[in-house]
C-alpha cells in the first residue's frame, strides 16, 4: 500500500521565467504569491469528510483569514476538495468538474478513502486511488481528519503554490493519455466529457510527451465533436460552397 511519501507528486518544470529577466521573475513571484493567498475552493462533498469543513470555515478556524473561501461552480474555483469515498458514478462528475475548472487548479483528497479506498477497499463500486484519475496535489489523510489537519494541509498547499511546486494541473495536460486510460478502464471506452482537454493543451501550449496516445485515439473514435460555435457571418450573397445547406 502506498504511503503519502510514495505517491508521486510530479512537478515537471517551474512556471516559465527564471530566464534571468529580473522583472519577469519578480512578476512571477508576485503572481505565485497572489495565487497562494487567494484560493477559492469547490468542495465536492462526497463523503463524511465534508462535516469537518464547516468548522474550518467558520469562527473557530476561519479559513478566510488565509484568503480561502468557498465558491459554488467549477469555473470560479481553484481547489477541488474531494472529501471522502469516490464511487464510480461520482467519479465521473468529479472528473467533469475538475476539467471545467480554470488552471492553475489544485485537487485535495481529504480522508483515507481518497488515498486508498479506506474502509471501502473491498467495494466493487468505489475508486480506490484518486490520483489514478486526477492529479492530486495534496492528500489529507485521516478518518476523518480534524479541522486542524485540514487547515494544516491547506497551509502546506499555499506554501507549495508560493514556491511554485504545486503544479500538478500541468501534469493532467502533459500525461492526459495516462489519466484518460485509467478513466476508460473504469467507465468503458465510450467515456467522454464535454470538455476538450486536448484542445486546451494545444491552445495554451501545454502539450507533453504523453498528452496523446492510444487512449486519446480511442476517445477520438467515439467522441461526438465539440467544436465551439464560432461566430460566422456566412452571408448569403457571398459565394458559398455547393454542398453547404441553404
Amino acid at each position: 500500500m502506498s504511503t503519502l511519501k510514495n505517491i508521486p507528486v510530479v512537478s515537471h518544470e517551474k512556471p516559465s521565467g527564471g530566464t534571468g529577466n529580473l522583472l519577469a521573475n519578480v512578476f512571477d513571484e508576485l503572481m505565485a504569491f497572489c495565487r497562494s493567498r487567494s484560493l477559492f475552493m469547490l468542495h465536492y462533498c462526497t463523503g463524511c469528510g465534508a462535516i469537518e469543513l464547516p468548522p474550518a470555515m467558520t469562527s473557530r478556524f476561519d479559513m478566510e483569514r488565509l484568503g480561502i473561501q468557498p465558491m459554488v461552480t467549477p469555473r470560479q474555483a481553484d481547489i477541488l476538495l474531494v472529501t471522502g469515498y469516490v464511487s464510480t458514478k461520482t467519479l465521473k462528475r468529479i472528473i467533469l468538474t475538475y476539467e471545467q475548472m480554470n488552471s492553475p487548479k489544485y485537487v485535495i483528497g481529504i480522508c483515507s478513502c481518497t488515498v486508498n479506498g479506506g474502509m471501502y477497499w473491498q467495494s466493487y463500486a468505489t475508486a480506490k486511488k484518486l490520483n489514478d484519475y486526477l492529479p492530486v496535489d495534496m492528500y489529507i489523510a485521516g478518518c476523518m481528519p480534524r479541522p486542524e489537519a485540514v487547515i494544516h494541509g491547506l497551509r502546506e498547499l499555499m506554501e507549495n503554490i508560493k514556491k511554485g511546486e504545486s503544479d500538478n494541473w500541468r501534469d493532467y495536460y502533459r500525461r492526459y493519455d495516462h489519466y484518460l486510460g485509467n478513466q476508460q478502464r473504469l467507465f468503458g471506452e465510450n467515456w467522454q466529457t464535454p470538455t476538450d482537454i486536448i484542445g486546451e493543451a494545444r491552445h495554451y501550449d501545454l502539450m507533453g510527451p504523453e498528452t496523446l496516445g492510444p487512449h486519446t485515439a480511442l476517445l477520438e473514435q467515439h467522441q461526438t465533436p465539440l467544436k465551439p460555435f464560432e461566430m460566422t457571418l456566412g452571408l448569403a450573397d457571398l459565394p458559398v460552397r455547393k454542398d453547404e445547406p441553404r
Partner: peptide, 26 residues
C-alpha cells in the same frame, strides 16, 4: 458579525490579480 478574523488587508486585490492571471480561461 460571525466572530471571525476576516481577510487580510490586501485580500480583494489578491483575488483580482489571481483571477486575471489564470492560465486557462473559458
Amino acid at each position: 458579525i460571525q466572530r471571525r478574523v476576516g481577510p487580510p488587508l490586501l485580500q480583494p486585490l489578491y483575488d483580482i490579480v489571481k483571477l486575471y492571471a489564470k492560465k486557462t480561461q473559458n
